[in-house]
């Protein structure tokens, strides 16, 4: 009997160590996997997107016809994304490459575009989901956005679209309206960013919205205390 108990005990100890190692891997080492995937996406991007895609001074061209948009395979680079305040990067120091699709294996490469949502610069809602803790945590600091910040997106045609950050909310995972056609009822073309909330959990979702601008704007963000994020 004692031997059986000892065997079970050792088995549980070994399994406990395995679980701990998995947690360490999930929280810290998955970032390396995503870094490598983002480098691959950057290489893919440089081959498929015309000209120099990451040009912050590029003129916005909203006249390009929609039929230019070819379907993108799930997991392929769909857009490039970054955030600015007063011309300085926020949320992420690097340009984030967005992939097509939002299933969990796809999101290991980077934030994903909801396939049912609109394209960048479209008249509807361009929605993106990204991890907040694991797999590089691209949206770890999404909650730092303030009115006046800008969200920049470059599509596969090399066009840059600039969105002005509007607001953020904490919602339940089942509140699908946040990625709907016109989530805030403003009628304006939107970008919606969804991520986990709180950090290290996905019990809720943190949602950030931006409205499409006709032209890039000078950021008017100023320092100071941030407003509390409303819960709906």
């Amino acid at each position: 009997m004692a031997r059986v108990i000892r065997t079970i005990g050792w088995t549980l100890i070994v399994l406990g160590v395995v679980v701990l190692l998995y947690v360490v891997y999930l929280l810290w080492f998955t970032g390396f996997e995503t870094q490598r995937e983002q480098r691959d996406l950057a290489d893919e991007w440089s081959l498929t997107v015309p000209d120099d895609p990451i040009d912050h001074d590029r003129e916005v061209d909203r006249e390009a016809p929609e039929e230019d948009d070819e379907p993108v395979d799930v997991g392929d680079a769909y857009a490039a994304l970054w955030f600015e305040r007063d011309g300085e990067p926020i949320v992420s120091d690097d340009v984030i490459y967005v992939v097509e699709g939002v299933d969990l294996p796809t999101l290991r490469r980077g934030p994903g575009h909801y396939p049912e949502s609109d394209r960048p610069g479209g008249e509807g809602n361009f929605a993106i989901a990204g991890h907040r803790t694991t797999y590089g945590a691209p949206f770890w600091s999404l909650d730092v956005l303030e009115p006046g910040d800008t969200i920049h997106v470059i599509d596969r045609q090399g066009r840059e679209w600039v969105y002005a950050y509007v607001e953020q909310r904490i919602v339940q995972p089942t509140e699908l309206w946040v990625v709907g056609e016109d989530p805030l009822g403003s009628g304006a073309p939107m970008i919606t960013l969804t991520t986990c909330h709180p950090r290290y959990s996905d019990a809720q979702r943190l949602i950030a919205w931006g409205e499409l601008l006709d032209d890039p704007i000078e950021s008017t963000a100023e320092g100071g205390e941030r407003d509390e994020i409303p819960e709906s």
Binding site: T11, V14, L15, V18, V19, Y22, L26, V102, L104, L107, G112, Y114, A129, G130, H131, R132, T133, T134, Y135, F139, P173, T174, E175, L176, V178, V179, T194, T195, C196, Y200, S201, D202, R205
Partner: peptide, 29 residues
Amino acid sequence: IAVAVVVLFTTVFPWVEERTQDPTMGTML
């Protein structure tokens, strides 16, 4: 132990990850 580790990595961990690391909307639990 080997079988347990395989089950953990192929079934349990993905299940846990799906329920703790899902940033998408529409999780109909």
